[in-house]
Design a protein around this nucleic acid. Structure first.
Lengths: 213, 213
DNA sequence: AAATGTTTGTTAATCCATTCACATAGTAGC
DNA sequence: GCTACTATGTGAATGGATTAACAAACATTT
């Protein structure tokens, strides 16, 4: 069923989670079939974009019918590998880090923060939302080999020390909230979430919108 | 000095905060001039992109010299309007909301969360990091007219009630952590930060990278 | 002041993504 | 089974952003 390795564009990859979430909701509502036109209304992505995205994963739909919701849930689930849980470690148990642990992607049982690290001795040895907090200097000792993914919530200044340490223990996917751009191995996939930048560029757009309107 | 309203692309807008942060740091280090080539090494954006972005705000540089760091700090500061403080309200004082308030964009004195709202009576009336928490049902009563910006950190299911209420009191810029897409007024600028999607698409890329490599 | 070297700003080329529009293939009704 | 619909998947057109490459502008040195 999977397409002959048609290249999946980066823009499409960023939309997979949105598709997955939407079709999951439809499935829960008992909806059995969905047209691209109708899905477009729900998630606010043009129907042509939806059809092109979907077609890059194979011929998921049927002409004159639409898509089977169950099929879509299966296919996107496979793409996102939701069947086997992804264990994740988190570095930096300040306000943001602690909030992320508490939350722990509760809606997605396949995403688990299983351990956390900090250098603050007041936090080391404690638990946050059931997740143990270890000394970051014991990283290599504490980490289990199934963990390939890390979330970084440390101050920007500390990040340059954190990344190489993570790469040293086999982490190859990093989500970081420290905006400081950083050099990492070519095998490491890194993504930045920069809250200040998001807010500033949002404000820029909002304040300059009157010109466009 | 400002260019004759050359259109600023969306991609450029998203980079302004990065530029601003970088040139601020250079200024603090006492650096007086910077070439696009050198700046490129620092922020990992190609020098051609930097020059094109900068030129959309006017002729900021000088051939054979580069850019004056002070000039850049001034210009980007003006673009981001950092001189007058932006007061922000936050809705939803759960783990994430509380962490955002505690943090309160401390590095950027012009960004201030000045009040917060929740519907949990245990939180109403308290303070978080010096910011008062009010009853969301008193939104119209409590909000001051200088506030045009809101951050939403409520569960997705609650968001459809929150947005119209905010628009009703004059909010026109919204940053939300609830991924549920939502209809809002054409005058409202909204931006989503979807942590689960970011993580899922990161993992997709990381897991499928071996094919590309 | 002339010559040499440097770096911008921009034109042109390229790349990537979105959108249009429709032939094709399947559905639904009779 | 035949006819009338319907919605996909995709070639072609468009649009937006990035990158290459270089003429023009300025700095610096002699």
């Amino acid at each position: 069923m999977l397409n002959t390795r048609a290249r999946v564009s980066k823009a499409t990859v960023r939309r997979i989670p949105l598709y997955y979430r939407a079709v999951q909701q439809l499935q829960q509502q008992g909806v059995k079939r969905i047209r691209s036109e109708r899905l477009s209304e729900i998630i606010h992505i043009p129907s042509a974009t939806i059809r092109r995205d979907f077609s890059s994963f194979g011929e998921l739909g049927k002409s004159g019918y639409g898509y089977s919701v169950d099929t879509l849930v299966d296919e996107f689930g496979k793409l996102l590998e939701v069947q086997d849980a992804e264990n994740i470690l988190l570095v930096g148990c300040g306000g943001l880090g602690a909030a992320l642990i508490e939350n722990n992607f509760r809606r997605n049982p396949d995403l688990n923060i299983t351990m956390a690290f900090d250098i603050d001795s007041a936090k080391i040895g404690t638990e946050i939302g059931g997740v143990p907090v270890y000394d970051f200097r014991e990283l290599a000792m504490r980490v289990t080999p199934d963990i390939k993914t890390a979330i970084i919530a440390v101050p920007s200044s500390a990040q340059p020390q954190v990344i190489p340490a993570l790469e040293g223990i086999g982490i190859d996917a990093i989500l970081t909230f420290a905006p400081q751009p950083v050099v990492c191995l070519p095998t490491t996939t890194i993504r930045y979430i920069d809250l200040t930048s998001e807010l500033q560029s949002l404000l820029f757009t909002a304040h300059h919108q009157q010109l466009a309107e």
